[in-house]
Design a protein around this nucleic acid. Structure first.
Lengths: 220, 220
DNA sequence: ATCCGCCTCCGCCGGACGGGGGAGGGCGGC
DNA sequence: GCCGCCCTCCCCCGTCCGGCGGAGGCGGAT
């Protein structure tokens, strides 16, 4: 069985120990070769540009430039960019979504065992067709659309005003809101007026639209 | 180096040729063992229940029960369910999202080469920490929320009524809509009334809410 | 002690909205 | 030809809404 060219890997992590550990694990595999390391995002970009590896293991938290931006820059500036696997600690980290959107081919948890690590590197290196490609990119983009940075006006709303806006977004009239909140209709009118002013809208319909677009109903 | 127990795999695909091909590929690997096959979703569920494999390669399109439902049933009824890899043809297939939501550990394109296939099986078999776990599940659920099956009323709206509803969802008044559509205000009132009737809402705010919840603004 | 923000309410007004009912024309199908 | 659907527009009316201006109480900050 002929030996094909080994998979060339670059490690980007600001902690030396982590890099050493990763290198030790990967070097034990004859088909994997660690060709370079980087301790910052900026360094990662230049190292990758120079060495042209097949795979980059990219930590998210790094000085100067974080792993996400580094990923973006690498993918944007290189012709045949490497596959990038983003390394993170928590699997529900919001970094995950950013990483996907940035174009990472996958991500790996720091607590993954050595075996999973080498499998992942091999897999990512040769797959242009595996585990969650374009479809997941779509999802991440949707996620960003569904969870935009909440506009400033959200912070300016008082507690009562938020309640009223929520009720408005249920399609309730002022009178109904008054009953549910156990206050007078005039009070609701005041709150509604405040909401309209702070959201910069002119009627309840526009306010509700703003609430939807701001993702106000999911979080806030 | 001691040989650990091989990864036990079940193949579920309605085409015999595909099963044969998959079996041939996987059987060439000493650490992988194909322990069973199924030609339908229902069969897949019972075979998996009997054989308790580590990994299932599940085709999406199958008679009786499709791969998605089979996946759901397997994951719901078994205590230590296998990892399920869903096999599909197009990577942007909506099946992908359903598969993720159903709890599949990954998916594989039919055009993936033999090497990617075995790597994927090994990877999925031993990773409870790899490539897009919980976070992606979250994304898929969001996707379902963002793209719900459009309610019946959408089909009942006439062309003009759809236009009016879109404009309503921009926060426009009847007069403004009339100007933009170059018709009289009375006409817009008629359309609005029809929209309210067909959507089962009582005012424009509720109609706009219904439009948002139905995903009417993205597609329809 | 004072001020400010928030919550609570009041009255008045004009305009927008929604319900009801009707009507004419165009266009395609039976 | 006729019926049905759609688009267009009309009047009347009651209600809801939003704008304006004002006011009292209360609690926290300075």
């Amino acid at each position: 069985m002929t030996r094909p060219a080994p998979v060339r890997v670059v490690l980007a992590d600001d902690e030396r120990m982590v890099r050493t550990a990763l290198r030790a694990i990967l070097s034990a595999e004859p088909d994997l070769e660690v060709v370079g390391e980087a301790a910052t995002g900026a360094e990662a970009v230049s190292v990758v540009r120079d060495l042209r590896p097949d795979v980059v293991l990219m930590d998210v938290r790094m000085p100067e430039i974080d792993g996400i931006r580094a990923t973006e820059q690498i993918l944007a500036t290189l012709d045949e960019p490497p596959r990038i696997v983003v390394v993170t600690t928590f699997e529900n980290d919001s970094y995950v979504y950013d990483a996907l959107r940035a174009g990472a081919s996958g991500f790996l948890l720091k607590r993954a065992d050595a075996d999973a690590l080498v499998q992942a590197v091999r897999l990512v290196a040769r797959s242009d067709s595996l585990l969650f490609p374009a479809a997941v990119r779509t999802l991440a983009t949707e996620h960003a659309r569904a969870h935009p940075a909440p506009p400033e006006w959200v912070a300016k709303l008082t507690g009562r005003e938020r309640e009223v806006l929520r009720h408005m977004a249920q399609g309730l009239t002022n009178a109904e809101i008054a009953r549910r909140m156990e206050v007078g209709p005039a009070t609701v009118k005041s709150h509604v007026a405040a909401v309209l002013a702070k959201t910069g809208t002119r009627d309840r319909t526009q306010a509700v639209i703003a609430a939807y677009e701001a993702g106000f109903l999911n979080a806030g």
